[in-house]
């Protein structure tokens, strides 16, 4: 009896391992954002984004810690965390979505593919549907994904005081750069 249970367990594990080859992940993905105004340029970088892509369904998941965004100036980082995104209250931002034109991508063949990713972006306690363009590069069994898009702080209930409103762009440019590896289990 014990052996049957053990065998079933093994079978489930193996089945999972086979299935897992469709999935690619990274824990060191990069997300940066840029705000450019005549008054001041602000940029921040986050190098510890966790993301998973399922090549079978085209689903993509991203999660990022707000406090892990690093700015050039300590004061900018402080304002970002304390006044704008309130990272103590909302420590994470996440995106959950899928590639809408999955048939255009051949994950088994090296190449560069243009994709559109549609899903929900959650930040500062607000969830908004977004649709962004991106590129997927398949090379030697690894997947690289990149995207650039804009978000408006106001869409996520982030209020910026009038005094500094001119220093922060109405549309913040976000760039995403992920190097996925096959998920081994």
């Amino acid at each position: 009896m014990k052996k049957i249970i053990l065998n079933t367990l093994l079978l489930v594990l193996v089945a999972n391992a086979v299935q897992a080859q469709d999935k690619f992940f990274t824990k060191t993905g990069k997300i940066s954002f840029f705000s450019s105004t005549p008054m001041e340029d602000i940029e921040a970088h986050n190098k510890t984004t966790t993301s998973v892509i399922d090549t079978k369904s085209g689903k993509m998941e991203f999660a990022v810690l707000m406090k892990a965004f690093q700015f050039e100036k300590a004061l900018m980082e402080e304002h970002f965390n304390e006044n704008y995104v309130e990272s103590a209250k909302y420590p994470k931002a996440s995106f959950s979505g899928a590639i809408t034109n999955l048939s255009a991508v051949d994950f088994k063949k090296d190449g560069t593919y243009k994709v559109t990713v549609k899903g929900n972006l959650t930040m500062h306690g607000v969830t908004k549907p977004v649709e962004v363009p991106g590129t997927i590069v398949v090379k030697n069994g690894a997947i690289q994904a990149a995207s650039t898009f804009s978000v408006a702080p106001e869409d996520f209930n982030i209020t910026i005081p009038n005094l500094v409103r001119e220093k922060i762009a109405k549309q913040i440019k976000v760039t995403i750069d992920m190097n996925y590896e096959p998920l081994k289990s």
């Binding site: 824990k27 510890t48 406090k67 690093q70 994470k92």
Partner: peptide, 11 residues
């Protein structure tokens, strides 16, 4: 800075 799947430490 918190936890996603892993605990993250920066700087």
């Amino acid at each position: 800075t918190g936890v996603l799947m892993d605990v993250v430490l920066i700087r």
